[in-house]
Computed example of a mutant assay.
Amino acid sequence: MGAQSPRAVERERSIDPEELRTAIAAVESRASSSSDLPPLAPEAHEAATAALRLLRHRPRSEHELRERLLTKDHAPAAVDEALERVRIWGLVDDADFAAEWVRGRRRRRGRSRGALERELREKGVAEFHIARAVSDIDETDDREQAAELVRARLARRPVDSGRGADLQGERRRLVAFLARRGYPTGLAMTVVNAELAAQVSP
């Protein structure tokens, strides 16, 4: 297999999980003589190999990788060297990670902007990367996303408009459903009330 320059890999952007696995395979199959980088120290090589195994499962933030490698008893200096090499290979980039995390969690789970920000902070992503990743999401977007979630939920569980107790129970369940996805209580109640009213109207 022809060797791909580490610098070329570094320039690739927004690596999704499948592309990441392909990039890892390219790195692992590259002959040492084809690389323009010096060999890693033995301990750093072990840490870099462990990092590639972790990344094969899913993209990770640099903080996540560092923490996992340290918990596997790799020496801090070896982890630093390994992560520097992984960055050069283009396999970890917190800006891309944050952008992909927001796209995926928004699309698959309907997470609110606030929830996405909290999740990225928990993964050790820097605030300026987080701000950029969520910059296209405002309160109107959150309200529209919440309404779509509620409509989809109601389509699966129609409300009986003739039973007020059930309607109240449905309202509580839907507000709790949105809260679990990070939507503020006020916004959740506004959206749920509007969608329930639309459903029970003649």
Rank of each mutant, 00 (worst) to 15 (best):
V79G: 07
R107V: 14
R107C: 06
L116A: 08
A98K: 07
R106K: 07
W101T: 15
E144R: 13
V86R: 03
R118S: 14
E122W: 02
T140M: 01
V125P: 01
Q145E: 14
S135Y: 01
Q145W: 05
F97G: 05
P76Y: 03
K123D: 02
I88T: 14
A78K: 08
A115N: 00
A146V: 05
A115K: 10
R113T: 07
R118T: 15
F97R: 02
S112K: 08
E127R: 11
F97D: 01
L120P: 05
P76S: 07
L91M: 06
D138L: 03
D93W: 03
R109M: 11
V79L: 08
E119T: 06
R132T: 10
F128Y: 13
A133T: 04
A98P: 00
V92Q: 05
D141R: 10
D96E: 05
G104I: 08
D141C: 11
E100A: 15
L116Q: 07
V79H: 03
A75K: 12
R108I: 09
R121F: 05
A75I: 00
A131G: 08
D136H: 10
E148A: 14
R143K: 12
A133C: 02
G104S: 15
A75W: 01
R103V: 12
R85H: 08
R113F: 05
A78D: 07
E122Y: 00
D94L: 02
G110P: 03
A82C: 01
A131T: 09
D93C: 10
E119I: 09
R121N: 04
R113L: 10
F97K: 04
G104A: 12
R106D: 08
L120V: 07
E127K: 02
L116R: 04
E127N: 07
L83W: 01
D136A: 12
V86P: 01
D141N: 03
E81V: 07
G124N: 02
R132S: 13
D136C: 02
I88C: 08
E119G: 15
S112M: 09
E84C: 07
D96K: 01
R85K: 10
V92I: 14
E144H: 11
E117S: 10
E84L: 13
A131S: 12
T140N: 09
D138E: 06
V134T: 05
V92Y: 00
A95Y: 06
R106E: 11
G124D: 06
D141W: 04
A147M: 09
V134K: 05
G110Q: 04
V134F: 06
I88P: 00
G114Y: 00
R121W: 02
D93E: 12
V150P: 01
A146N: 05
L83T: 00
D138T: 09
R103I: 09
E117F: 06
Q145H: 11
R121H: 11
A75R: 13
A95T: 14
D138G: 06
I88G: 04
R143H: 10
E127A: 14
G104H: 13
A75G: 10
V79Y: 01
D96Q: 03
E117W: 03
R107Q: 14
E127T: 12
P76V: 10
V86I: 15
E148M: 09
R105H: 14
R111C: 13
E122F: 03
D138R: 09
R108Q: 13
V150Q: 03
A98E: 06
A99E: 15
E144C: 11
T140Y: 00
L91E: 08
E84A: 15
A147E: 06
R85I: 07
